[in-house]
Nucleic acid binder design. Structure first.
Lengths: 118, 118
DNA sequence: TTTTTATATGAATATGTATTCATATGATAA
DNA sequence: TTATCATATGAATACATATTCATATAAAAA
C-alpha cells in the first residue's frame, strides 16, 4: 500500500507546486477575504446590500460608534469593496465589488440565514 | 432632492435592519472568511485542492516550517475546513468543506490567476 | 526496548489591527 | 463669518493571532 501511495503523493505534490499562484496573488486573495472576515465590516456590507446608506445610518444598522464605522469604511474603500459619494453634508456609501457580495451571499446561504427579499 | 431621498434612505435603513442576520450568524460567517484570509492557510488549502497530502508535503508546497503548518492545519480543522486521517506514521489532510474551496476558486478567477487543470 | 520519523502542542514573542478618544475637515445654515 | 452637522483621521490602547522554539506524542524500524 505504501509504495503506490508514495508515488501518488509525489505526483500531487508536483502538481500542487505547479498550480500554486504567486505569493502576490495569494496575498491579494487573502486581503479580500480578510476585508470581509471582521464582523463589523461584514455587518456594514450586509447593511449596504440593499443600496447606499450614509455613515450615520450604517452605524445604526451595523452598531458601533461613528468613528469605528468610519475607520472600517475606509478599510473597505481601500480594498475597493465599497465606494462613496458626497451628497451635501452626508457621505453615501455603496457596494462596488459585487463579487465580494456574492461570496457573502454564498456564506449566508450556507448558514441557512438568508431571508427572502420583499 | 433632500426630502424624497430622506424617505428612501429611511426605508432602506428599516429593510437593512430587518434583514440583518443575528450576531451569532455573522460571527460564524466571519470565522469562515477569517480562516481563509491568512496567506499561509490559503496556500495550504490551494495545496490540498488536488487531493490529500501529508503534513511534510503541505509544508513544502505552502512554505513555512512544520510547526507553523501544523498549527494552521489545526485552525483549519477546528473550522471544519479540512479533515485528517492517519496512515502509518503520516497524517494525511484533505479538504472537507468544498463550499469554502468554491469561494477560493471564485477569488482565483476574479484575479485571473486560475490555471487550467490537466 | 531504544531509536527514528512524523506530527502535535504549550508557551513566549512578535505582529497586526479593531476600537476609542480627541480633533480635524468639509458642507451647510444662521 | 460663525455655528452646527456629518464624516474623517492620527495616536494610543487593547486585543487577537501567527510564528517560533522546545518538547510531547504516536507509529514504525532496528
Amino acid at each position: 500500500m505504501a509504495c503506490d501511495e508514495e508515488e501518488l503523493h509525489e505526483e500531487r505534490l508536483k502538481r500542487a507546486l505547479a498550480k500554486m499562484p504567486s505569493d502576490e496573488n495569494i496575498a491579494e486573495m487573502g486581503e479580500r477575504f480578510k476585508a470581509i472576515s471582521e464582523p463589523s465590516r461584514l455587518k456594514i456590507l450586509l447593511a449596504l446590500s440593499d443600496g447606499e446608506l450614509c455613515v450615520e445610518h450604517i452605524a445604526r444598522v451595523a452598531g458601533g460608534n461613528q468613528s469605528a464605522v468610519s475607520h472600517q469604511l475606509k478599510t473597505l474603500k481601500d480594498n475597493r469593496i465599497v465606494k462613496s459619494r458626497r451628497d451635501g453634508k452626508k457621505v453615501l456609501y455603496s457596494v462596488s465589488d459585487w463579487h465580494v457580495m456574492a461570496m457573502i451571499e454564498l456564506a449566508k446561504e450556507h448558514l441557512g440565514c438568508d431571508g427572502q427579499d420583499d
